[in-house]
Amino acid sequence: MINVEHLSKTFGKHEVLQNITTTVEPGEVVAIIGPSGSGKSTFLRCLNLLEVPTSGRITIDGADITDKKTDITKVRQGIGMVFQHFHLFPHMTVMDNLTFAPVKVKGMSLEEARSKSEILLERVGLRAKADAYPSKLSGGQKQRVAIARSLAMDPDIMLFDEPTSALDPEMVKEVLAVIHDLASTGMTMLIVTHEMKFAREAADTIYFLDSGQLIEKAEPGRFFTKPQSERAVRFLEKVL
């Protein structure tokens, strides 16, 4: 499904990602954790080419997205992404945020997009907010809308870039519940997060990144009880 080979990314002289190789299987839920500045977000953003890798190869369902000839716009349509700061379109209602891409990009009829969006909003518990503008929503609500917006494109893969880091503590739960729920549907997901409890419960695999390297890759049970590396041990001491 997702194949990453020798992925490196440098910003100027700074090596943000160093030679990362991994494979994500269909339906796998990966939680990416690590100290801040370890390259977690950059790794995630390379997967839909919001960051262009300096070297290495990434294939998504067989399509080499690091190849310039690949139509990245097409590939992105199958990869949903949820950002730390939501990035809802402020000049559109919640409903329009959801229907815009399916209608404009996929050529879905407006009626179909609307009825689908209503189901999605129902699923994230925000059906009543369909006609509200994003500015009228709380942070947690915004993030749930953002998730629904990504799902409206029927993606095969979902990327979450610190989805709860910008939220007030009391709103974290409602968002995590939605993501957890989604994980149980068999969606392939990669989640950059600081919520260790959530990572442990929801993920199939934990990626531990530090200084741009993929240090450990393990089942949550094993990682949180018996971390293999010195760096992971120290990290867990700090956060648990």
Partner: peptide
């Protein structure tokens, strides 16, 4: 306009032209 708007549109697979005109 917030950079994130562009990234959100790109992540949704919205082509450049549509993104500029509508977002």
């Amino acid at each position: 306009v917030d950079r994130g708007q562009r990234e959100a549109a790109m992540a949704l697979g919205i082509p450049y032209r549509t993104m500029m005109i509508s977002i």
